[in-house]
């Protein structure tokens, strides 16, 4: 279980990214974090494994307080938290296998990682995970030889090879096409269910969030403005999260697109008739 208490982050530039955020994430729950750009979604999940140092507040992961840990202890706690990134963040010039094994770096000595002599159990786990995400054949390819969807699968396998107790997922589908996005989301949800692994997923795409998440948290200007099941995400709630103007503008754009599309179809039908 992960608990955030009064978490605040003020950047050196004076931007307040998070203001007094208190949340609890129970075991096995997949939570979607939505909100406009700059609402602090990315900062929030990066504060949890302290890639971004919170200004004040407390983070507790099943009993261990993560804030204020010295470097070595922090590295040991980071092993418990897997992270999946927006642009995959694979080390492009390493092989797929090396990328998956890099999830074990916190567990092995520098010499072991330098000589690529990972313990047999780690190698077995890496193969099992690659098989799970359907990339068994690509193990020895370089990461930059894969397509976007495949790369994100490697990213998932890397995070899972840490045997994490929590997954932090930062915009997993932002650089993928709609179909691949859905496949990746489905894979993530399945994997979380298999392992009853809790996950916090930053997500831009509201319909995607509604479709896949068990709980949705809406952030606006660093504050939690919504916390509830996806069904409760009504239009008025979306307005509080995204602001009235943006939201209606988006809707109108959608309508205009649909109108234009219908018109084009009609014209085409007239031509072929």
């Amino acid at each position: 279980m992960l608990t955030l208490t009064n978490l605040t982050k003020t950047y050196r530039t004076g931007d307040k990214a998070l203001a007094d955020v208190s949340l609890t994430f129970p075991k096995g729950q997949v939570v979607g974090l939505i909100g406009p750009s700059g609402a602090g979604k990315s900062t929030l999940i990066r504060c949890i494994n302290r890639l971004v140092e919170p200004t004040s507040g407390k983070i507790t992961l099943s009993g261990t307080e993560l804030t204020g840990l010295p470097p070595r202890a922090l590295r040991q706690q980071r092993r418990r938290i897997g992270m999946i990134f927006q642009e995959y963040a694979l080390v492009e010039r390493l092989t797929v296998m090396e990328n998956v094994l890099s999830g074990r770096l916190g567990y092995v000595s520098f010499l072991q990682s330098f000589t690529r002599r990972f313990p047999p159990a780690d190698i077995e786990r890496a193969y099992r995970l690659l098989d799970r995400v359907g990339l068994m054949e690509q193990a020895d390819k370089r990461a930059d030889a894969l397509s976007g969807g495949q790369r994100q699968r490697v990213g998932i396998a890397r995070a899972l090879s840490q045997e994490p107790e929590l997954l932090l997922v930062d915009e997993p589908t932002a650089s993928l096409d709609p179909k691949t996005s859905r496949q990746i989301m489905r894979l993530l949800i399945e994997i979380c269910a298999e392992r009853s692994l809790p996950a916090i997923v930053n997500i831009h795409d509201v319909p995607l969030a509604q479709q896949f998440m068990q709980r949705i948290i809406g952030l606006r200007a660093g504050r939690v403005v919504f916390d509830g099941p996806p069904e409760a995400l009504t239009e008025s709630v979306l307005t509080t999260i995204y602001g009235a103007e943006d939201w209606t503008a988006m809707r109108k754009d959608g309508e205009a697109d649909r109108a234009a599309e219908a018109e084009a179809v009609a014209r085409l039908a007239a031509l072929t008739a």
Binding site: N49, L51, R75, Q76, Q77, R78, R79, I81, M83, F85, A89, L90, V91, E92, S102, G103, R104, L105, G106, Y107, S113, G155, R158, Q162, L168
Partner: peptide, 10 residues
């Protein structure tokens, strides 16, 4: 890429 490796506890 560096951030991802740091996040593993390296």
């Amino acid at each position: 890429q560096a951030e991802a490796i740091r996040a593993t506890g390296a």
